[in-house]
């Protein structure tokens, strides 16, 4: 018997992919629609991309989102890596179980609740809501994802490598930076990419924690869509999809390379 895809498997794969990607495909195709009416195909055109280019508010929102994503991903990567190192390395210490639970909790916590509690916190400490509060909110949540990714890599890391570095005269911190960090770097980079894309497409947390003057791209799109879908939204969504896809593909490739190099 030929080992290939049976008709049934083929259909299942086709339906599955269609279910996942047909809406996105339609969105991408309609972003090149010449017609002003979203549901009517009027031929190919890039006019909505041109319109997007001239839409200052939309570009401003995109720029805000990119900056927030960059800063929060970087902070989350540093904090998440530190948390992972502590959880894997330090054995038992007072409050370890609580700490690891606290690191994982935001992964399963409904975003609405996280958002609301952060909002209450920012109100309580009278922080000016805006760019920095959104960045902090994103750092809080995405840090957990980084911690999980880095932790799984650290678990399979041969501790004797770091010990060998110390044995050869390297102080502990330098041993971590010159031996451990380069070797777990793929996981750290993958964590950063994931944190970046999570921040970029977050609507809920940003809505709760932002203030006037710091509108992120998802918030902007969402508020425009409520007034009716403009083809321009399709264009900006397509750009977002490309950015996120590149990020995810890069993260996958980097962590694959890490596996091969090991």
């Amino acid at each position: 018997m030929r080992r290939g895809l049976s008709a049934f498997n083929m259909t299942a794969v086709a339906l599955g992919l269609a279910f996942l990607y047909l809406p996105i495909a339609i969105l991408v195709i309609y972003s090149f629609n010449a017609s002003r009416l979203v549901t009517v195909w009027g031929g190919w055109s890039t006019r909505w991309y041109v319109a997007l280019w001239n839409d200052e508010a939309m570009l401003e929102a995109a720029w805000t989102s990119l900056r927030i994503a960059f800063l929060s991903a970087t902070a989350a990567t540093i904090l998440g890596t530190l948390a992972a190192v502590v959880l894997v390395r330090s054995g038992r210490f007072f409050g370890r179980t609580a700490f690891s639970g606290l690191v994982y909790a935001p992964l399963v916590m409904p975003e609405v609740i996280t958002g609301l509690s952060l909002l209450l916190l920012f109100v309580a400490i009278e922080a000016d809501r805006g760019f920095w509060t959104v960045t902090m909110a994103h750092t809080t949540v995405t840090m957990c994802f980084v911690a999980v990714i880095v932790q799984s890599r650290l678990l399979s890391f041969d501790l004797s490598l770091e010990e060998a570095a110390m044995d050869l005269g390297c102080p502990p911190l330098r041993a971590f930076l010159t031996v451990t960090l380069p070797l777990i770097f793929p996981a750290v980079a993958a964590g950063w990419m994931l944190a970046f894309t999570l921040s970029l497409d977050d609507l809920v947390l940003a809505s709760f924690t932002t203030g006037p003057g710091a509108t992120t791209l998802p918030i902007r799109i969402y508020s425009e869509v409520r007034l009716g879908v403009k083809p321009e939204i399709n264009a900006v969504s397509t750009v977002m999809i490309v950015v996120v896809a590149v990020g995810i593909i890069a993260a996958t490739l980097i962590s694959k390379r890490g596996v091969v190099a090991r």
Binding site: S160, E163, M166, D167, A261
Partner: peptide
């Protein structure tokens, strides 16, 4: 601490640094 002791250890797993070359490993210390 280990990094100040004038003894060196050859680990059972060898613990060679995979991201460094042979010369880089030997030069590390």
């Amino acid at each position: 601490p280990p990094h100040r002791r004038p003894v060196n250890m050859m680990f059972q797993s060898y613990a060679l640094f995979p991201h460094l070359t042979v010369a880089g490993n030997v030069a590390f210390g």
